[in-house]
Design a protein around this nucleic acid. Sequence first.
DNA 1: CCTTTCGTTGGCGTTACGTCA
DNA 2: CCTGACGTAACGCCAACGAAA
Length: 299
Amino acid sequence: MELGLSLGDTVPKPLQFLHDNKPQKIIEKDLGFCMAVGKMNSDDENNGRSKETGLLDRASSSDPPVQLDLLPFDPVHKTTQNLFTEPGRGLVVNRSRVVEEELKTEISSPEYSRFSSSFNKIDFSVFRGKRDFEGITTYNINISNSDDHKGSASSRGSDDHEEENGISRKKLRLSKEQSAFLEESFKEHNTLNPKQKLGLAKQLNLRPRQVEVWFQNRRARTKLKQTEVDCEYLKRWSTTLTEENRRLQRELQELRALKASKPFSPATTLTMCPSCEKVSTTAAAAATAAATKPKQAAS
DNA sequence: CCTTTCGTTGGCGTTACGTCA
DNA sequence: CCTGACGTAACGCCAACGAAA
Protein backbone atom coordinates (compact mmCIF):
# COMPACT_ATOMS: atom_id res chain seq x y z
CA MET A 1 0.00 0.00 0.00
CA GLU A 2 1.31 3.37 -0.94
CA LEU A 3 0.14 6.70 0.33
CA GLY A 4 0.54 10.06 -1.28
CA LEU A 5 -0.40 13.25 0.51
CA SER A 6 -0.96 16.88 -0.34
CA LEU A 7 -2.09 19.52 2.10
CA GLY A 8 -3.49 22.99 1.75
CA ASP A 9 -4.17 23.07 -1.92
CA THR A 10 -7.11 24.95 -3.21
CA VAL A 11 -7.85 22.09 -5.44
CA PRO A 12 -6.67 18.65 -4.51
CA LYS A 13 -3.70 18.15 -6.70
CA PRO A 14 -3.22 15.12 -8.75
CA LEU A 15 -0.70 12.93 -7.13
CA GLN A 16 2.08 12.16 -9.44
CA PHE A 17 2.25 8.48 -9.03
CA LEU A 18 -1.37 7.72 -9.56
CA HIS A 19 -2.59 9.69 -12.39
CA ASP A 20 -2.35 8.77 -15.82
CA ASN A 21 -5.82 8.89 -17.13
CA LYS A 22 -8.21 9.46 -14.28
CA PRO A 23 -10.34 12.57 -14.39
CA GLN A 24 -9.79 14.96 -11.51
CA LYS A 25 -12.47 15.98 -9.15
CA ILE A 26 -12.78 19.67 -8.47
CA ILE A 27 -13.80 20.83 -5.06
CA GLU A 28 -14.61 24.48 -4.70
CA LYS A 29 -13.06 25.12 -1.38
CA ASP A 30 -10.12 27.04 -0.12
CA LEU A 31 -8.41 24.22 1.67
CA GLY A 32 -8.08 20.71 0.60
CA PHE A 33 -6.46 17.59 1.81
CA CYS A 34 -5.84 15.04 -0.81
CA MET A 35 -4.48 11.61 -0.11
CA ALA A 36 -3.96 8.89 -2.59
CA VAL A 37 -3.87 5.26 -1.82
CA GLY A 38 -2.22 2.89 -4.20
CA LYS A 39 -2.56 -0.77 -3.51
CA MET A 40 0.40 -3.02 -4.10
CA ASN A 41 0.44 -6.72 -4.21
CA SER A 42 3.17 -8.69 -2.64
CA ASP A 43 5.19 -8.66 -5.78
CA ASP A 44 4.82 -4.93 -5.99
CA GLU A 45 6.16 -4.65 -2.52
CA ASN A 46 9.32 -6.22 -3.69
CA ASN A 47 9.60 -5.12 -7.21
CA GLY A 48 7.39 -2.15 -7.81
CA ARG A 49 9.50 0.30 -5.88
CA SER A 50 12.36 2.14 -7.32
CA LYS A 51 15.44 1.11 -5.52
CA GLU A 52 16.93 4.57 -5.83
CA THR A 53 13.98 6.68 -4.74
CA GLY A 54 11.87 4.29 -2.75
CA LEU A 55 8.83 5.61 -4.63
CA LEU A 56 6.17 3.47 -6.05
CA ASP A 57 6.42 2.67 -9.68
CA ARG A 58 2.83 2.99 -10.85
CA ALA A 59 3.32 0.83 -13.85
CA SER A 60 3.91 -2.15 -11.64
CA SER A 61 0.76 -1.83 -9.57
CA SER A 62 -2.08 -3.88 -10.89
CA ASP A 63 -4.84 -2.16 -8.91
CA PRO A 64 -6.02 1.28 -9.86
CA PRO A 65 -5.23 3.93 -7.27
CA VAL A 66 -7.77 5.46 -5.00
CA GLN A 67 -7.87 9.14 -4.22
CA LEU A 68 -9.03 10.40 -0.88
CA ASP A 69 -10.31 13.93 -0.46
CA LEU A 70 -10.60 15.26 3.05
CA LEU A 71 -13.04 18.06 2.63
CA PRO A 72 -12.41 21.13 4.72
CA PHE A 73 -14.78 22.29 7.36
CA ASP A 74 -17.53 24.40 5.96
CA PRO A 75 -19.59 26.24 8.55
CA VAL A 76 -22.25 27.03 6.03
CA HIS A 77 -23.44 23.88 4.49
CA LYS A 78 -23.05 23.65 0.79
CA THR A 79 -24.57 21.16 -1.46
CA THR A 80 -22.53 18.21 -2.40
CA GLN A 81 -23.62 18.10 -5.95
CA ASN A 82 -20.98 17.27 -8.49
CA LEU A 83 -19.11 15.35 -5.89
CA PHE A 84 -20.07 12.00 -7.22
CA THR A 85 -20.97 12.87 -10.71
CA GLU A 86 -17.79 11.87 -12.36
CA PRO A 87 -16.69 8.39 -12.91
CA GLY A 88 -13.60 7.13 -11.23
CA ARG A 89 -12.66 6.17 -7.73
CA GLY A 90 -12.37 8.21 -4.65
CA LEU A 91 -12.95 8.62 -0.96
CA VAL A 92 -14.81 11.34 0.80
CA VAL A 93 -14.18 12.16 4.40
CA ASN A 94 -15.25 14.88 6.80
CA ARG A 95 -18.86 15.29 5.99
CA SER A 96 -21.33 15.13 8.78
CA ARG A 97 -24.33 12.91 8.95
CA VAL A 98 -26.49 15.85 7.96
CA VAL A 99 -24.74 15.88 4.65
CA GLU A 100 -24.70 12.14 4.62
CA GLU A 101 -28.48 12.09 4.83
CA GLU A 102 -28.63 14.60 2.06
CA LEU A 103 -26.30 12.53 -0.01
CA LYS A 104 -28.39 9.47 0.51
CA THR A 105 -31.27 11.27 -1.07
CA GLU A 106 -29.34 13.12 -3.71
CA ILE A 107 -27.12 10.35 -4.84
CA SER A 108 -28.33 6.98 -5.70
CA SER A 109 -26.31 3.96 -4.88
CA PRO A 110 -23.95 2.61 -6.20
CA GLU A 111 -22.14 5.90 -6.50
CA TYR A 112 -22.57 6.40 -2.86
CA SER A 113 -21.56 3.82 -0.39
CA ARG A 114 -20.98 5.32 2.96
CA PHE A 115 -18.92 7.84 4.72
CA SER A 116 -18.70 9.51 8.04
CA SER A 117 -16.04 10.85 10.24
CA SER A 118 -14.99 12.09 13.55
CA PHE A 119 -11.77 13.73 14.49
CA ASN A 120 -9.81 10.82 15.74
CA LYS A 121 -11.39 7.94 13.99
CA ILE A 122 -12.25 8.27 10.39
CA ASP A 123 -14.72 5.91 8.97
CA PHE A 124 -14.89 6.30 5.26
CA SER A 125 -15.91 4.47 2.22
CA VAL A 126 -14.69 3.93 -1.24
CA PHE A 127 -16.88 4.77 -4.13
CA ARG A 128 -16.30 3.97 -7.70
CA GLY A 129 -17.75 5.07 -10.94
CA LYS A 130 -21.33 4.53 -11.88
CA ARG A 131 -20.54 1.40 -13.79
CA ASP A 132 -18.11 0.03 -11.34
CA PHE A 133 -20.11 -0.75 -8.29
CA GLU A 134 -19.28 -4.27 -7.38
CA GLY A 135 -16.04 -3.48 -5.66
CA ILE A 136 -17.28 -1.07 -3.02
CA THR A 137 -15.20 -1.44 0.07
CA THR A 138 -15.36 0.24 3.41
CA TYR A 139 -12.19 1.08 5.21
CA ASN A 140 -11.68 2.32 8.71
CA ILE A 141 -8.73 4.54 9.31
CA ASN A 142 -7.83 5.36 12.86
CA ILE A 143 -5.62 8.41 12.96
CA SER A 144 -5.80 8.98 16.67
CA ASN A 145 -2.53 9.83 18.34
CA SER A 146 -3.78 9.14 21.81
CA ASP A 147 -2.79 6.12 23.77
CA ASP A 148 -6.36 4.88 23.85
CA HIS A 149 -6.25 3.88 20.27
CA LYS A 150 -3.05 2.04 19.92
CA GLY A 151 -4.68 -1.24 19.41
CA SER A 152 -5.72 -2.30 22.84
CA ALA A 153 -9.36 -2.58 23.75
CA SER A 154 -10.21 0.41 25.84
CA SER A 155 -11.68 -0.05 29.27
CA ARG A 156 -13.64 3.18 28.85
CA GLY A 157 -17.16 2.34 27.91
CA SER A 158 -17.87 5.19 25.58
CA ASP A 159 -14.78 4.52 23.53
CA ASP A 160 -16.16 1.22 22.53
CA HIS A 161 -19.59 2.56 21.92
CA GLU A 162 -20.39 3.52 18.46
CA GLU A 163 -23.61 4.74 17.13
CA GLU A 164 -25.47 2.58 14.77
CA ASN A 165 -24.00 4.33 11.76
CA GLY A 166 -20.50 3.63 12.90
CA ILE A 167 -19.75 7.19 13.86
CA SER A 168 -17.56 7.32 16.90
CA ARG A 169 -18.87 9.16 19.91
CA LYS A 170 -15.42 10.29 20.63
CA LYS A 171 -15.08 13.90 21.61
CA LEU A 172 -14.76 16.29 18.76
CA ARG A 173 -13.61 19.81 19.41
CA LEU A 174 -15.84 22.34 17.72
CA SER A 175 -14.15 24.93 15.60
CA LYS A 176 -14.06 28.58 16.57
CA GLU A 177 -16.49 29.38 13.81
CA GLN A 178 -18.93 26.76 14.99
CA SER A 179 -18.66 27.86 18.61
CA ALA A 180 -19.11 31.51 17.68
CA PHE A 181 -22.15 30.72 15.60
CA LEU A 182 -23.69 28.65 18.38
CA GLU A 183 -22.88 31.41 20.85
CA GLU A 184 -24.72 33.94 18.73
CA SER A 185 -27.71 31.64 18.51
CA PHE A 186 -27.63 31.13 22.24
CA LYS A 187 -27.81 34.88 22.77
CA GLU A 188 -31.02 34.94 20.78
CA HIS A 189 -32.62 31.95 22.47
CA ASN A 190 -31.07 29.67 25.04
CA THR A 191 -33.28 26.75 24.16
CA LEU A 192 -33.97 25.25 20.79
CA ASN A 193 -37.04 23.88 19.18
CA PRO A 194 -36.50 20.91 16.87
CA LYS A 195 -36.64 23.07 13.78
CA GLN A 196 -34.00 25.46 15.06
CA LYS A 197 -31.85 22.55 16.12
CA LEU A 198 -31.97 20.97 12.71
CA GLY A 199 -31.34 24.29 11.03
CA LEU A 200 -28.29 24.99 13.15
CA ALA A 201 -26.99 21.48 12.67
CA LYS A 202 -27.29 21.79 8.95
CA GLN A 203 -25.69 25.21 8.86
CA LEU A 204 -22.80 24.17 11.03
CA ASN A 205 -22.37 20.76 9.53
CA LEU A 206 -22.97 19.11 12.87
CA ARG A 207 -25.27 16.40 14.06
CA PRO A 208 -28.47 17.70 15.72
CA ARG A 209 -27.45 15.83 18.83
CA GLN A 210 -24.21 17.83 18.95
CA VAL A 211 -26.15 21.08 18.77
CA GLU A 212 -28.48 19.85 21.47
CA VAL A 213 -25.61 18.85 23.74
CA TRP A 214 -23.86 22.14 23.10
CA PHE A 215 -26.93 24.08 24.22
CA GLN A 216 -27.36 21.89 27.27
CA ASN A 217 -23.77 22.44 28.28
CA ARG A 218 -24.03 26.12 27.49
CA ARG A 219 -27.08 26.47 29.73
CA ALA A 220 -25.21 24.63 32.44
CA ARG A 221 -22.27 27.03 32.09
CA THR A 222 -24.59 30.01 32.24
CA LYS A 223 -26.18 28.65 35.35
CA LEU A 224 -22.83 27.97 36.93
CA LYS A 225 -21.67 31.50 36.18
CA GLN A 226 -24.88 32.91 37.60
CA THR A 227 -24.46 30.77 40.69
CA GLU A 228 -20.97 32.13 41.14
CA VAL A 229 -22.27 35.69 40.81
CA ASP A 230 -25.07 34.97 43.27
CA CYS A 231 -22.60 33.42 45.64
CA GLU A 232 -20.39 36.51 45.50
CA TYR A 233 -23.38 38.73 46.10
CA LEU A 234 -24.49 36.66 49.08
CA LYS A 235 -20.99 36.73 50.50
CA ARG A 236 -20.92 40.51 50.31
CA TRP A 237 -24.41 40.70 51.76
CA SER A 238 -23.36 38.40 54.56
CA THR A 239 -20.35 40.62 55.31
CA THR A 240 -22.56 43.69 55.41
CA LEU A 241 -25.03 42.00 57.73
CA THR A 242 -22.23 40.84 60.00
CA GLU A 243 -20.90 44.37 60.26
CA GLU A 244 -24.38 45.70 60.92
CA ASN A 245 -24.89 43.09 63.57
CA ARG A 246 -21.64 44.07 65.28
CA ARG A 247 -22.63 47.73 65.21
CA LEU A 248 -26.01 46.95 66.76
CA GLN A 249 -24.40 44.80 69.40
CA ARG A 250 -22.07 47.65 70.32
CA GLU A 251 -24.99 50.04 70.48
CA LEU A 252 -26.90 47.66 72.69
CA GLN A 253 -23.96 47.41 75.04
CA GLU A 254 -23.74 51.21 75.19
CA LEU A 255 -27.41 51.47 75.99
CA ARG A 256 -27.17 48.85 78.67
CA ALA A 257 -24.26 50.73 80.12
CA LEU A 258 -26.27 53.94 80.01
CA LYS A 259 -29.21 52.29 81.66
CA ALA A 260 -26.95 50.92 84.36
CA SER A 261 -25.56 54.36 85.04
CA LYS A 262 -29.07 55.90 85.42
CA PRO A 263 -31.12 53.05 86.90
CA PHE A 264 -33.96 55.18 88.44
CA SER A 265 -34.87 57.68 85.83
CA PRO A 266 -38.55 56.94 85.03
CA ALA A 267 -38.77 59.77 82.56
CA THR A 268 -36.04 58.32 80.46
CA THR A 269 -37.18 55.96 77.72
CA LEU A 270 -35.56 54.93 74.51
CA THR A 271 -36.67 56.17 71.14
CA MET A 272 -35.24 55.76 67.70
CA CYS A 273 -34.92 58.57 65.21
CA PRO A 274 -36.65 57.27 62.06
CA SER A 275 -34.34 59.17 59.72
CA CYS A 276 -30.91 58.45 61.13
CA GLU A 277 -31.92 55.29 63.06
CA LYS A 278 -30.01 56.47 66.10
CA VAL A 279 -31.34 55.60 69.50
CA SER A 280 -31.74 58.36 72.00
CA THR A 281 -33.40 58.92 75.36
CA THR A 282 -36.77 60.62 75.63
CA ALA A 283 -35.24 63.20 77.88
CA ALA A 284 -33.04 64.34 75.05
CA ALA A 285 -35.91 64.01 72.63
CA ALA A 286 -38.12 66.09 74.89
CA ALA A 287 -35.50 68.78 75.03
CA THR A 288 -35.31 68.78 71.25
CA ALA A 289 -39.07 68.89 70.98
CA ALA A 290 -39.29 71.74 73.43
CA ALA A 291 -36.80 73.67 71.40
CA THR A 292 -38.76 73.21 68.17
CA LYS A 293 -42.33 73.64 69.52
CA PRO A 294 -42.37 77.41 69.96
CA LYS A 295 -41.17 77.83 66.39
CA GLN A 296 -44.01 75.67 65.09
CA ALA A 297 -46.56 77.57 67.21
CA ALA A 298 -45.28 80.86 65.91
CA SER A 299 -45.66 79.76 62.37
C1' DC B 1 -63.08 13.01 31.30
C1' DC B 2 -59.35 9.97 33.78
C1' DT B 3 -55.43 6.79 33.40
C1' DT B 4 -51.62 4.72 31.27
C1' DT B 5 -47.98 4.49 28.01
C1' DC B 6 -44.53 6.35 25.20
C1' DG B 7 -41.48 9.67 23.16
C1' DT B 8 -39.12 13.97 23.74
C1' DT B 9 -36.62 17.31 26.13
C1' DG B 10 -34.00 19.65 29.74
C1' DG B 11 -31.36 19.40 34.01
C1' DC B 12 -27.79 17.41 36.42
C1' DG B 13 -23.75 14.84 37.66
C1' DT B 14 -20.09 12.65 35.70
C1' DT B 15 -16.49 11.10 32.50
C1' DA B 16 -12.93 11.69 29.44
C1' DC B 17 -10.48 14.25 25.91
C1' DG B 18 -7.85 18.38 24.31
C1' DT B 19 -5.15 22.22 25.53
C1' DC B 20 -2.10 24.90 28.04
C1' DA B 21 1.07 26.44 31.55
C1' DC C 1 8.68 15.13 27.85
C1' DC C 2 5.64 14.81 31.79
C1' DT C 3 2.01 16.47 34.75
C1' DG C 4 -1.81 18.80 36.74
C1' DA C 5 -5.44 22.19 36.03
C1' DC C 6 -8.98 23.64 33.35
C1' DG C 7 -12.54 23.89 29.71
C1' DT C 8 -15.81 21.34 27.46
C1' DA C 9 -18.00 17.59 24.40
C1' DA C 10 -20.47 13.71 25.37
C1' DC C 11 -22.73 10.36 28.17
C1' DG C 12 -26.31 8.26 31.38
C1' DC C 13 -29.95 8.94 34.40
C1' DC C 14 -34.00 11.11 35.94
C1' DA C 15 -38.08 14.06 35.96
C1' DA C 16 -41.42 16.80 33.59
C1' DC C 17 -44.36 17.30 29.90
C1' DG C 18 -47.48 16.46 26.07
C1' DA C 19 -49.64 13.40 22.71
C1' DA C 20 -51.86 9.21 21.77
C1' DA C 21 -54.33 5.13 23.07
